[in-house]
C-alpha cells in the first residue's frame, strides 16, 4: 500500500473511531488497521501537515479531525444514541451534514450556548432541515478566512 492509500486508511479509521464514540489514539488506529504503531505515527504527522487533522502540540493526541473535536467543547451533537463534540458551530452542523447518506439517519440534536450570554441554544436537523429553538440566532465568524489556520483552535 502506498503512503497516500495508507494515510486514507488511517484518516478513515480516525473518523470511524470518532463515530463509535471515542477520540482515537495512535494505538487504537494501529490496532484497527492491524499495523504497527510507527507507521500510524508517521501517518498522523502527514495528516496533520496536510491539515486533515490537528494534533495537540508536542503530542499525537487528536485535537481536531473536523468536524469532530478530540476534547470536550461547547458544541455537543447527539445522533441517535451517540454523542459527539464538534470544534465550532460550523463543525457542529457539519456532523449531520457529513452523516447524510452515510448513516441510516442523520437527524441530530445540537446543544450549544450563546457566546455572549451563555444561554442555551438548541438546534435540530430533521430530514435534512436545520431548525433552532432561538429563531433570531445568528452565526458569527470573527477571523477572516485567510487567517483561519494562524490559530485554528481559536478560529
Amino acid at each position: 500500500m502506498d503512503t497516500t492509500s495508507f494515510d486514507t486508511s488511517v484518516r478513515l479509521a480516525i473518523m470511524d473511531g470518532f463515530l463509535t464514540g471515542a477520540t482515537p489514539s495512535v494505538g487504537a488506529v494501529a490496532s484497527a488497521l492491524g499495523t504497527d504503531i510507527g507507521s500510524v505515527e508517521a501517518a498522523f504527522d502527514r495528516l496533520a501537515a496536510g491539515r486533515a487533522i490537528v494534533l495537540t502540540p508536542g503530542t499525537r493526541d487528536i485535537r481536531m479531525a473536523a468536524p469532530f473535536a478530540g476534547v470536550p467543547t461547547d458544541f455537543r451533537v447527539r445522533v441517535g444514541e451517540r454523542s459527539y463534540y464538534a470544534n465550532c458551530i460550523w463543525d457542529a452542523v457539519g456532523i449531520p451534514a457529513m452523516l447524510a447518506g452515510a448513516a441510516p439517519s442523520a437527524d441530530a440534536r445540537i446543544e450549544t450556548e450563546c457566546a455572549d450570554c451563555s444561554a442555551p441554544v438548541g438546534l435540530a436537523v430533521d430530514a435534512g432541515r436545520l431548525t433552532t429553538d432561538v429563531p433570531g440566532a445568528v452565526v458569527h465568524f470573527a477571523v477572516p478566512a485567510a487567517r483561519w489556520w494562524a490559530d485554528i483552535v481559536f478560529t
Binding site: C117, V121, A137, V138, H140
Partner: peptide
C-alpha cells in the same frame, strides 16, 4: 465560529 442568540448579542 460561534452562535449567538441575536445580532445584538454579537455586538
Amino acid at each position: 465560529m460561534r452562535l449567538f442568540r441575536s445580532e445584538e448579542h454579537v455586538m
